[in-house]
Amino acid sequence: MSFEWPWQYNFPPFFTLQPNADTRQKQLAAWCSLALSYCRHHKLYTLDVMEAQESPVFNNKKIERKLSMEAIQVVFEELRKKGNLEWLDKNKSRCLVMWRRPEEWGKLIYQWVSKNGMVNSVFTLYELANGDDTEGEEFHSLEEWMLLRSLQALQTDGKAEIITMDDGKGVKFF
């Protein structure tokens, strides 16, 4: 299934940071949603800002418009504020993109666990992300750092406990 671009993607003003505060807010919301859905569609978890500028998301070759570096930073900052992005370095050149926040992932995982009657069972993290049972689930092949974050979120809610095992980490759901 190919990625479906929003209408804004072909609207030239979308690629100019709007000076009007209200307009800019709406524009940024559209950008955040586009960036996240694009990453989700392509299962991207980390982004390099320099590469991002050349990626089709921020560079519409058809209408010959691309978002400036400054504007990309603004969009990323907006994502960070919403909790969908984390910088990996001080220079803000690389970032983690969380198109689902850890709590959302945790919720999805817990739903799957309870649906399959496996509450009170113990899983290794590898099993959860790459095991045959989870094939077809959205969290399948979730990157480990992301998975760990999701489980940590569940642990805060008292729905899981992360256990350290010989060859890695495991989790028990309650």
Binding site: W7, Q8, F11, P12, P13, F15, T16, Q18, P19, N20, D22, T23, K26, Q27, A30, E64, R65
Partner: peptide
């Protein structure tokens, strides 16, 4: 908020504010 802009190499161009 009735218009928005497209500031490109071709110059400053105004569009109806479709965002709103």
């Amino acid at each position: 908020g009735h218009l928005c802009r497209d500031d490109s190499v071709e110059g400053l161009r105004f569009y109806p504010n479709l965002f709103s």
